[in-house]
């Protein structure tokens, strides 16, 4: 049976310190292509993304991955299959090769970085290079899903366009790519768009 949904949010509620961040959220993320979740800052987009690899769990409702509650998977196994890359790239101590692992040079080429960067100290990369390195590090684990949290918000215009093209390529290569963005322009890149609205705190 062909799977219709890679992920499904079912009546998801996540509580913050002062009321729900997300409430009654329902959406389906198809297995193919690029899904973009758009919405204003503070609408809970990042929280929704963090539920996919279980950095967070819903306080009510559930998130299904390939038809099963994400909580039924081993968290470490789930995270290897569903790679989440944060808004600001994180570099670990050591060289780019230490960070990326695997066939570093091929992976760097895949994300549009010069393979000779492999021997450079990771903390000496520019933000744009570091963001690409973070993508390469995730791709090294051969994930099925790439979940990206505002991957271009920390970048200048030239880097933004480059990363957007890369994301499009990755989605076309057969990966499920999910991107969260407050930039409505990103909806144009997407195969599927999910609009995320802030929780109306006035509602009972």
């Amino acid at each position: 049976m062909a799977l219709e949904a890679r992920f499904e949010y079912r009546q998801v509620r996540v509580d913050g310190d002062s009321g729900p961040i997300v409430a009654g959220f329902c959406a389906v993320i198809p297995p193919e292509g690029l899904t973009v979740m758009v919405g204003p800052s503070g609408a809970g987009k990042t929280t929704l993304l963090r539920l996919l690899n279980r950095l967070d769990d819903p306080d009510d409702g559930m998130v299904l991955f390939e038809g099963r509650d994400v909580r039924e998977y081993d968290a470490l196994e789930l995270r290897r299959r569903v790679q989440l890359v944060g808004q600001m790239p994180v570099t670990f101590p050591g060289t780019v090769a230490d960070n990326v692992g695997g066939d570093t040079r091929a992976l760097l080429a895949r994300v549009g970085l010069d393979p000779s960067l492999a021997d450079r100290e990771a903390d000496r990369l520019s933000v744009g290079e570091a963001q690409r390195m973070a993508l390469a590090r995730s791709l090294a684990l051969a994930p099925e899903v790439l979940a990206l949290d505002e991957p271009t918000s920390a970048l200048d215009v030239a880097n933004k366009t480059g990363i957007e093209q890369l994301i499009r390529q990755l989605a076309d290569s057969g990966l499920t790519v999910i991107m969260v963005s407050h930039d409505p322009r990103h909806a144009e890149l997407a195969d599927h768009v999910i609009e995320v609205h802030p929780v109306n705190r006035e509602e009972p």
Binding site: N53, L55, L76, E77, R79, R80, Q83, L84, V85, G86, M88, V90, F92, A134, R137, S138, L141
Partner: peptide, 12 residues
């Protein structure tokens, strides 16, 4: 951020 980046890569 750094701890969660490590967790996201499948570290315990």
């Amino acid at each position: 951020r750094e701890i969660e980046a490590r967790l996201s890569l499948g570290q315990t």
